[in-house]
Simulated scan of single mutants.
Amino acid sequence: MTPESLIPTMEVIPVHPFWPEVLLVVTFAAHILFMNAVFGGTVIALVRGLKGQSEISRELSRKLPTLLALTINAGVAPLLFLQTLYGNFDYPASVLMSAYWLALIGVLLLAYYGLYLYDFSYKSLSAGRRRFLLVCVIAMMVYISFMFTNNMTLMLRPEHWPDYFKNPYGTILNLDDPTIIPRYLHFFIAALAIGGLFVALVGSWNKDNSFIEHGMRWFVRGTLVNLVAGIWFLFSIPENIMMKFMGQDILSTLILVVVLIFAALMIHSGMNLRVRMAVISTVITVLLMSVERHFLRNFYLEPYFKIEHLTVSGQWTPMLMFYGFVTIGIVAITYMIRLWLKAERS
Rank of each mutant, 00 (worst) to 15 (best):
M289L: 15
W316V: 14
M319V: 05
I105M: 09
L64Q: 05
Y91Q: 10
A193D: 01
S269W: 03
F146N: 03
G222S: 07
Y112K: 07
Y122S: 14
F148S: 13
N272E: 08
D176Y: 14
M141G: 06
P14Q: 00
P14K: 06
L301M: 15
N151V: 11
S54M: 15
P78M: 12
V26T: 05
L287G: 07
S145Q: 09
S57G: 12
L287W: 11
W316D: 15
Q83V: 12
I144E: 15
L310I: 09
M35S: 12
F235I: 11
N272G: 02
L67A: 11
M289I: 08
N209F: 14
V43Q: 13
P162I: 00
G52P: 10
Y118D: 13
H31P: 00
M243A: 13
Y323T: 08
L256Q: 08
L60G: 08
L265N: 07
L234N: 04
L320C: 04
R62W: 07
R129H: 14
V258D: 12
V275F: 05
L320M: 14
F305D: 04
S210T: 08
H268L: 13
A99Q: 05
L251E: 11
Y300Q: 07
F322Q: 05
N151C: 11
L109W: 09
G40V: 05
H309V: 03
G49Q: 01
R217V: 15
Q83K: 06
A190V: 09
L301Y: 13
A343F: 12
F18N: 09
F18M: 10
V25T: 04
Y184L: 02
W161Q: 01
L108Q: 01
Y169S: 06
E4W: 00
L50M: 15
H31S: 11
V275R: 01
S126M: 03
L288T: 13
K166I: 05
F89C: 06
H16A: 08
S145A: 13
L251F: 02
V199E: 03
V291M: 09
V286C: 10
